[in-house]
Every structure is written in structure tokens, then in C-alpha cells.
């Protein structure tokens, strides 16, 4: 599903942020990416969503070779990858329903289809009753679940969650992780980055550790070790 082959990313000022990363993620896998701040986790995810281009190496996602990807194809690539951010990135002037519907509007789905699909997804993340609420009326955990609903509403094959629990208390953080596990059980490949030791240890999933821009360990059903 995801293949990083000797991927390097260098910036003119900062130098190398990622160096010769080799990573292979199978379909339906749940992978936790750990590492200290500035280790290169977010850069790796930005390479996946093509917000950044690698300086060297090869990236293939869902059969798409990023080297051959043209700029005009990037929106269509992003429609295949769901992304959840630490700061939720919700539109404050839109309701929960409208925030989720937004992802369907941009692909030209009819209002009827949207009315049919969004409640189902809100049900998966446990927010069906909050459809008419605005983000400001929700807790942090609920906001993150809205962001997850928006990321999965188009049924992407891959879901990237960049520090989704970073701004949440332990209870809400765990609610979010449980939603991610549920989505993974439905068949979506999940790539999660986190600092949270408890979450990593409880999850017992494959843990990939990045240290100083290099892949330092890759262990199945592992725990948080730096």
C-alpha cells in the first residue's frame, strides 16, 4: 500500500530532515510512527500527501509512483488519502454536518448523496447527535472525531493521523484512538504519529521509530522505545 524506498528530504537551510528512509506498509495495516519533535515524522507524512517532494528516493502509494505524478493529479491523489491533523483544521463557521459534507462537495457529490452519506459516517465516529453543532460547541475529542469523519467520508484506502491526540486529555485521546482502530477494522490502512507513550503501549501495533531523520527501529506489536 505504501512504499518508501531510500527516501531523503533535505532543506537548503535545515539540511537533511529525512535520510534514506525505507518503509513498507501493507494494506489494512495499523502503523504507529513515533519519534521526538523534529525527528521528521510530520515531514514523512507531508511527503505522503505530496505537500513536500522528496529530494531523493522513491515513493509509491496505492500503485501511484510519485515521481510520475503531475501537479494536476495531486488533488485526485489527496482524495484517496484521508488526513487528520493535531489542530483539527475544521471550519468554524460550518456545522459538524457541513464540515464533513465539505469533503464530498469538492468532489461534486449531489446534495442527496451527501445527506445520505454524512450521517452514516457521523454514526461511525459517534457524533450523529451533534450534526447541527458548531465546532466551538464541541470538546477537543469531539472536534477530532469530526476531523476523522471528514477524512474517511470518501472511504480512502489510507488514513493519515498526524498527532491527532496531541491536544486532547487522556480520556478523549483514547476515544479518538478507538475510532481509528474501528476504521482500521473496516479495512483502511492507518498511519498514526504520536508522542503518547500510553497509547503506543496499549495499542500493541507495529511501531516505526524515527530518530534524527533516520528510521531507527521497526517492530511489530511493539511498545514505545526511543
Amino acid at each position: 500500500m505504501i512504499l518508501f524506498d531510500r527516501v531523503t528530504k533535505k532543506y537548503k537551510k535545515k539540511g537533511a530532515v529525512l535520510e534514506r528512509i525505507n518503509l513498507h506498509v501493507e494494506p489494512k495495516e495499523f502503523v504507529v510512527l513515533v519519534g521526538e519533535s523534529g525527528a521528521g515524522k510530520s515531514t514523512l507524512l507531508k511527503l505522503l500527501t505530496r505537500e513536500e517532494k522528496p529530494t531523493g528516493g522513491k515513493i509509491i502509494v496505492g500503485g501511484i509512483d510519485y515521481e510520475r505524478l503531475k501537479d494536476k493529479d495531486i488533488p485526485f491523489l489527496r482524495r484517496k488519502i484521508g488526513v487528520v491533523f493535531q489542530d483539527f483544521k475544521l471550519l468554524s463557521n460550518r456545522t459538524v454536518f457541513e464540515n464533513v459534507a465539505f469533503a464530498l462537495e469538492i468532489v461534486g457529490m449531489s446534495n442527496k448523496e451527501i445527506r445520505h452519506t454524512v450521517p452514516k459516517v457521523l454514526n461511525i465516529v459517534g457524533l450523529k447527535s451533534k450534526a447541527d453543532s458548531y465546532p466551538s460547541e464541541l470538546s477537543g475529542g469531539e472536534r477530532q472525531r469530526v476531523a476523522i469523519a471528514r477524512a474517511i467520508v470518501r472511504q480512502p484506502k489510507i488514513l493519515i493521523a498526524d498527532e491527532p491526540t496531541g491536544n486532547l486529555d487522556p480520556k478523549h485521546a483514547w476515544d479518538v484512538i478507538k475510532v481509528l482502530e474501528k476504521i482500521n477494522r473496516y479495512g483502511t490502512t492507518v498511519l498514526l504519529t504520536t508522542h503518547n507513550r500510553d497509547i503506543v503501549n496499549k495499542l500493541k501495533r507495529r511501531v516505526v521509530t524515527i530518530k534524527d531523520g533516520k528510521l531507527s527501529s521497526d517492530r511489530a506489536r511493539s511498545e514505545y522505545k526511543l
Binding site: T49, P75, R78, V83, K89, L91, A103, I106, V107, R150
Partner: peptide, 16 residues
């Protein structure tokens, strides 16, 4: 600007 950056990230085309 926030809406535009979200639109970019969730796959809106430049024309949209």
C-alpha cells in the same frame, strides 16, 4: 485562507 488550505489538503482542484 484556512478554508483554502483545508480545501487543498482534502483534494479540491485549483479550479474549484
Amino acid at each position: 485562507r484556512d478554508e483554502i488550505s483545508i480545501m487543498k489538503l482534502i483534494g479540491a482542484t485549483p479550479d474549484y
